[in-house]
Design a protein around this nucleic acid. Structure first.
Lengths: 326, 326
DNA sequence: TTTATTTACGAAACCGATTTCGTAGATTGA
DNA sequence: TCAATCTACGAAATCGGTTTCGTAAATAAA
């Protein structure tokens, strides 16, 4: 008697399975006494309906997918927290998928959703993603998608992002105001709109202060920490070396620290560093580090909220683009 | 034509749905030519089988659940990463649930699994969990459970943990060797075996060095940051104040820092601090902080591996208790 | 009293795939 | 030549619920 079904309840109570099903759903066409009996037995036997049977019949899964590049980055940890919190409130289940920044994985994961595994998707695209047909296909199948943090500009759906241009601009201004004139930008991919916007903010800030933009100071890093070390190290060994660094992704932080340590550069005396991060601890642990904190938890909640709005009724998502300011 | 089913393929090719199903599963009883035709059409129409229909029929979901207290803690972020990596390799899907350290939520989430939503569970119990009947019920329904990090001692199943006694002992020794004599232990719950073991290690280290164990130096913190601030602040305002702090959970880090800052205590001059953490960045960011790094990613992988072993064939889990050393 | 309506429930179709079993036609064996 | 065996496929049951529709009995309305 490992798993109990509605049929067992029906036999036990000498009722039909239809009656049991209706009783459990508190249907008005079942008498209160019968409902009572059904509830009691279900409670006693610890009956839990098979979710797959009802998903199949009802053609909805009460499940959403969260597709992320990585969770090592604390941004996504907080985001998951926000998402799960909302999902639990709404009675939804949350499937997690990691693309590890690989386009092929992302495409495979998303293709699977065409089978109807999930009712909706929260997506933060991989840094390799340039082509978006796999996502469009989902939308054409009427499966709502909400982007957060890492978005695809060309897809007409809700996008939950921070004002990256503004942040990039302000961060750069911050460095300029503190006397930096040779400011490097450490970025990660060049197809991601998010890093691009930060870069535009960075460039604008330099232009506004009439500081020359040096292409050689804009360093596209990779996912390979060792390689990044080399890149940053080479950067800091130039004859004209940066006196300020703006890192657009959190995971570059240790690398930057290591390089500076190894080259005997002191932060912030020799070089000032600003990073985009979610380590609220970072600023406490080391006051010499300036961090731009993204409201990850809130973004997760906002993204989930937008998705559920779309799931509850069908209307345009486009309108619901929220720009959260850090 | 939003969602395509096996029936549509059957109509299109003038075959029965049985034939299509078998062809897609590469059955030997279907001719190669027919299979070829089926594959081509499936490919062309981008057919993805409905997972709920096949889960229902096959009585397995190819899905596991990960139940965690919280993901704000970076330990669990890394663990998720490890788990998802293994799950993806094995072709499994991963559902995430957060208990927010609440027993009632944990119980509700786990009860839902009795309906057969998942084939197996990775569990790290909430700090409130003392009673374990909800977990035993799962095992009696033959749904495998693997504990990781936060375990229930009384349940006979695989447990993936670090050697917490040893870590607690070593951390305390570390402080003693650096001259600390008044060492405080900041913990979080007293029902969690993990913190208890760390505490035992702490006590043993004190005993071995013939240092008196002061009950008042063992502070059970909560999930309320403000409250924790008060607790730690009061601790540090004592006439006999600690010259060493051992924090068993990562999230206390900012609190400790803030308190010390506000009381003008310098780390590590006035008070030395050791924390259990997964912020690999922590030690880089601030060398004055000693961290005990838990191999979260590896623990996640180990836990997932153990679970899949149980899912692939039925044998005892008990044997597979691995003790990973930090 | 007769008809209309309501109440409370059951039979059966259905969701989309999997799987067992049956069988027409082709092939092989004696 | 006729039985035995394969081959390649289809009919139908099945998984466990949900939902539509039908209906006997009870109640209300005429």
């Amino acid at each position: 008697m490992s798993i109990i079904t509605i049929k067992m309840l029906a036999n036990e109570l000498h009722l039909s399975i239809a009656t049991i099903s209706k009783a459990l759903r508190d249907s008005h066409e079942i008498s209160v006494e019968t409902k009572q009996r059904v509830f009691e037995l279900a409670e006693k036997l610890n009956y839990v309906p098979n979710p797959y049977a009802s998903s199949l019949r009802k053609r909805k899964s009460k499940t959403i997918a969260v597709v992320l590049p990585e969770v090592a980055d604390s941004f996504f940890s907080f985001a998951i927290n926000g998402i799960e919190t909302i999902a639990q409130e709404k009675g939804y289940h949350v499937l997690i998928y990691l693309t590890h920044e690989k386009f092929t994985k992302e495409a495979a994961i998303i293709k699977d959703f065409q089978g109807g595994r999930v009712d909706g998707i929260l997506l933060s695209v991989s840094s390799e993603t340039k082509e978006t047909s796999h996502i469009k296909e989902l939308l054409s199948r009427n499966i709502p998608v909400v982007f957060f943090d890492r978005v695809c500009e060309d897809i007409p759906t809700a996008k939950i992002i921070t004002d990256d241009f503004e942040s990039g601009y302000k961060a750069t201004r911050h460095l300029i105001e503190r006397g930096c004139r040779y400011i490097a930008l450490l970025s990660i991919s060049n197809s991601l709109s998010i890093t691009n916007k930060r870069m535009e903010g960075y460039k604008k800030a330099l232009l506004d202060s009439k500081i020359k933009i040096r292409q050689s100071f804009i360093v596209p890093c990779t996912n390979d920490t060792d390689h990044n070390y080399t890149l940053v190290s080479n950067l800091m060994k130039r004859k004209i070396k940066p006196d300020g660094i703006l890192a657009t992704v959190e995971k570059l932080t240790p690398t930057i620290y290591l390089v500076c340590k190894d080259l005997h550069l002191r932060i912030p005396r020799d070089v000032k560093v600003v990073i985009f991060s979610n380590l609220q601890t970072a600023s406490i642990l080391n006051p010499s580090l300036t961090t731009i904190i993204q409201p990850a938890f809130e973004m997760g909640k906002a993204a989930a909220t937008a998705l559920f709005k779309a799931l509850e009724k069908s209307n345009t998502d486009l309108e619901k683009e929220s720009l959260v300011i850090p």
